[in-house]
Design a binder for these strands. Structure first.
Length: 576
RNA sequence: GACUCAAUAGCUCAGCUGGUAGAGCACAUCCCUUUUAAGGAUGGGGUCCAGGGUUCGAGCCCCUGUUGGGUCACCA
């Protein structure tokens, strides 16, 4: 029986599937298919003079078809791009039997199917490099129609643009929107370039726990889960800082990790609950060294990606060429507000906020207030890469105090296009200071700051054994990818951004219907009529239901024997 | 979380003051020894997001909800 849930096109495709099988063609063959080149290689290297590529074999997805009698053109898309493929009836079927062309190719194949073709490369009358097919193989039949995107000379018509569908069904997005693939290959290239640089210097790539008993290293709300065997709560990591520094204590001179971190906070176009961060720690260095290291790293990434240090983000052209401007936080605030906050007490700072019309909260400590002023007044102006240095001590509990001013810390953030990209410290390695800073965090927490850090006593203990002077840096990979590829939304640099689950409609099993005396064949019809549950059927007028389902039977040519009106009355009676 | 916009055919979208649901592509059938968004002709395809309300009558107006987008808040 016809499946009433399927669209007409899906039904046709399932029929084609059966037809293929009847002709002895397996629509999902198991054998490997040998490929000896790619669309990209053919298009870039084919030369009619040389007459090369005369025995090619490639595989890919059919993206469009133009069938004209005994000759047809197909666009085949492989991993690297698209190439036109020419099917000529008498080449495919040199003998009397024309089934392979007339039936298999013309009728049973569709846009979206994956096939392999063998043939020779030539240039058509219109000048397009194409493959003249002598043999083709069905590799996978597609039974759901793809969104059809047409393009001509780089212009796209009827693009597949609905963000919801693009993110939920990323595979479709990747198939029909080629530029999407590009963003993700660049993302990988960014990480590979960084890895290369770190490995060249002998730093070790490591892995640290994602499930942590104490979520440390950052101020953020964690996800919480539970371990059954230990019967303890575990947190998904919000940062890997404290574990990596333990490894420096343990004697590694340089360690780094590309890690997924998780924060149970809001979602928007720059925040996803899970995101990727790279953190690196190098012994015997300070934050001045780390600034140079960061400059070199970003310059190298930009060059690897674009062959230049200049990158366009929105309307701004950002130049990642080193060196970057360095401004202390106090100077940055002075620069953009005219107010010198150095040495101010909390009360004075609160007044500054009032004067500048910056909203702050009772629970805010001094550090957080300064951060608010900076974030509100200075940060948005930092378009070209700028190191903001020397943050107030209250907002950097893991960072060493500034060598010249104990109110400040040796910390920098790199701002790009008005956003924070990197965060780095001369790491705090004084265990007694570290414990005091944790205790200050606890006070903030008691004051109502729900992002204040937890105390990790084992980390303090590690420091007590002695950690070499160390500098550490963290960089958001998603954000970096956004900058480097010109994407404005984090969802465009994550393959599978977090989405609310699709709502599934509740529907009763067929058995629930048959219990009422409804023949099994009619269950699908009743559900098609909109009554997915028995409960929904309870108050239906039998006459209306009878008419509706007989109508569906007729319209879809199901060939079922219609029930009598009395039958329908009894079904509904039976519910009660 | 607040405000706001959107949801109509497989896809992209139209739909007038509220009066029988449309186009292009895709799909099907037929014709065609044929080339670039695209050969021609004909045809099928709809729970207008869901549920209520107003109305003689709702894709359209009102309310509630769902999902998504945008802006803002929150997010070192």
């Amino acid at each position: 029986m016809m499946n009433l849930e399927l669209s007409e096109q899906e039904v046709f495709r399932r029929q084609s599937l059966e037809e293929l099988r009847k002709l002895g063609i397996n629509p999902y063959p198991g054998a490997k298919y040998e490929v000896n080149t790619s669309s990209e290689e053919i298009l870039s290297k084919f030369d009619p003079e040389k007459n090369n590529f005369q025995e090619v074999s490639i595989a890919g997805r059919i993206m469009s078809r133009r069938i004209m009698g005994s000759a047809s053109f197909v666009e085949l898309q492989d991993d690297k791009g698209k190439i036109q493929v020419y099917f000529k009836r008498d080449n495919i079927c040199p003998n009397e039997d024309k089934t392979l062309y007339n039936t298999v190719f013309k009728k049973l194949l569709d846009i979206g199917d994956i096939i392999g073709v063998k043939g020779n490369v030539f240039v058509t009358k219109v000048g397009e490099t194409s493959i003249n097919v002598t043999e083709f193989t069905v590799l996978s039949k597609s039974i759901k129609p793809l969104p059809v995107v047409k393009e001509k000379d780089g212009q796209t018509y009827d693009a597949f643009t609905d963000p919801e569908q693009r993110y939920r069904q990323r595979y479709l997005d990747l198939i029909v929107n080629p530029h999407v693939k590009d963003v993700f290959t660049k993302r990988t290239k960014i990480m590979n370039t960084m890895r290369e640089m770190f490995n060249e210097r002998g730093y070790l790539e490591v892995e640290t726990p994602i499930l942590q008993p104490i979520p440390g290293g950052a101020a953020a709300r964690p996800f919480i889960t539970h371990h059954n065997a230990l019967d303890i709560p575990l947190y998904l990591r919000i940062a890997n800082e404290l574990y990596l520094k333990r490894l420096i204590v343990g004697g590694f001179d340089g360690v780094y990790e590309f890690s997924k971190d998780f924060r149970n906070e809001g979602m928007d176009r720059t925040h996803n609950p899970e995101f990727t961060v790279m953190e690196i720690y190098v012994a015997y260095k300070d934050y001045n060294w780390m600034m140079e290291f960061t400059e070199e790293m970003l310059e190298r990434v930009a060059m690897a990606l674009h062959g230049t240090t200049k990158v366009k983000i929105g309307n701004n052209e950002i130049d990642f060429k080193a060196p970057y401007r360095r401004v202390t936080m106090i100077d940055a605030i002075k620069e953009h507000t005219g107010i010198d906050i150095s040495g101010m007490k909390e009360e004075q700072l609160r007044k500054v906020c009032k004067d500048l019309d910056i909203e702050i909260d009772e629970t805010f400590g001094k550090g957080k207030i300064i951060d608010e002023i900076f974030g509100e007044k200075a940060e948005p102006h930092m378009i070209q890469p700028t190191f903001i240095t020397d943050y107030p001590v209250e907002m950097s509990p893991l960072c060493k105090k500034h060598r010249d001013n104990p109110e400040l810390t040796e910390r920098f953030e790199l701002m790009v296009n008005g956003k924070e990209l990197c965060n780095a410290y001369t790491e705090l390695n004084d265990p007694i200071d570290q414990l005091e800073r944790f205790q200050d965090q606890l006070k903030l927490s008691e004051k109502g700051d729900d992002e204040a850090m937890f105390i990790d006593m084992d980390f303090v203990r590690a420091l007590e054994y002695g950690m070499p002077p160390t500098s550490g840096m963290g960089i958001g990979i998603d954000r970096l990818t956004m900058f480097m590829t010109g994407q404005e939304s984090i969802q465009d640099v994550l393959f599978f951004p977090q989405m609310r689950p699709e709502k599934k409609e509740k529907r009763d099993d067929a058995s629930a219907y048959t219990k009422l005396g409804i023949p099994e064949d009619w269950v699908a019809v009743i559900q098609k009529a909109g009554y997915l549950t028995i409960d929904g059927l309870k108050d239906v007028k039998p006459g209306a239901l009878h008419q509706k389902i007989c109508g569906i039977n007729k319209k879809n040519k199901l060939g079922l024997t219609n029930p009598s009106q009395d039958d329908v009355v009894s079904w509904i009676e039976n519910i009660k």
